[in-house]
Each structure stands twice: as structure tokens, then as C-alpha cells.
Amino acid sequence: MNFEFKVLGGDFVRAGNASSQVKKILKQLNVDASIIKRIVVALYEGEVNIVAHAYSGVIKVNIDTERILLMLDDSGPGIPDIGLAMQPGFSTASPIVREMGFGAGMGLPNIKDNSDEFSISSEVGKGTHLEILVNLKVT
């Protein structure tokens, strides 16, 4: 199964819509609740990052019986130092983002923590690409 969602930078009202849709799909597929939580928490942090830090993005979701793969691609400023961005507490979030309850610098580390496989790449001035893989079977 494949799904695709568009995300608009700065749109905090709709931030989380894609994650919410994915949660509904996974519930219908009877995926274990604790696994759903890991998936949607990771996706939601990624979605919020596009809204908070980039101009626009696309989330692609691929689900089979074994695993879910989430691919987040954005057009945006990119991340100059990924090692630094991955450190808990590092954040360049604007005051507006902080007012929305984000900007604690916990997003990327938490995405990694909730993933079975995680990769991030970025090009300054172009955008950022995240891949999040989670196994759907309880082990």
C-alpha cells in the first residue's frame, strides 16, 4: 500500500494531519497499539519539522505485511551539521515554533529512538530527506 501527503511550511494548524491519517490506516490494519504509537510519534515529529523548519514537503508511506517505510522529503534550508542536529537539545527553532510547543531539540533524537531503521540526509539550500522504517510485527 502506498500513500502520499503534502505538508506546507509554517502551517501549524494542519501540522499533524498526515500523521493522523497514517494512524487511522494502521488502526484499520490492526497493528499493535504500541507499535502504532512509535510510528506516529516519529512521523509527527518529522511532519512538525517540515512545518517548523522547511518550506514544503512530501511524505510517502509504504506499508506491507512486515513493515512500514516513511519517506519525508522537503524543500527547505537543509541542515548544515546533521551530527549537531541529532544531539538532544540542539534547536534553531523560531519563537513561533516554540509557542506551538516545539523547539526543544528533542524531535530528531526521538524519531531515531522510535525507528527500527533511521536515516537522514540533507543538502544546504535544497532540503532534507528522512527515512523511517518500523517493523509491524511484535517481536
Binding site: F12, S19, K23, E45, V48, E99, G101, G103, M106, G107
Partner: peptide, 28 residues
């Protein structure tokens, strides 16, 4: 983002952040 790191079930959130993202966070 701190709330989103929690793994506990049967948890209630106490917050002064009254916006849509607080409810989204509870949903996720």
C-alpha cells in the same frame, strides 16, 4: 516534544499550552 518521548499508558497531560498541537500530541 518532551511529552512525545513518554512510553507510559494511562497518562494525563497537565499543560499551559492551549493550542491544537497539544491535542495532536495527545492523539499521537
Amino acid at each position: 516534544s518532551d511529552v512525545l518521548t513518554l512510553k507510559n499508558e494511562n497518562l494525563v497531560l497537565i499543560t499551559g499550552l492551549a493550542n491544537i498541537q497539544a491535542v495532536r500530541t495527545a492523539e499521537m
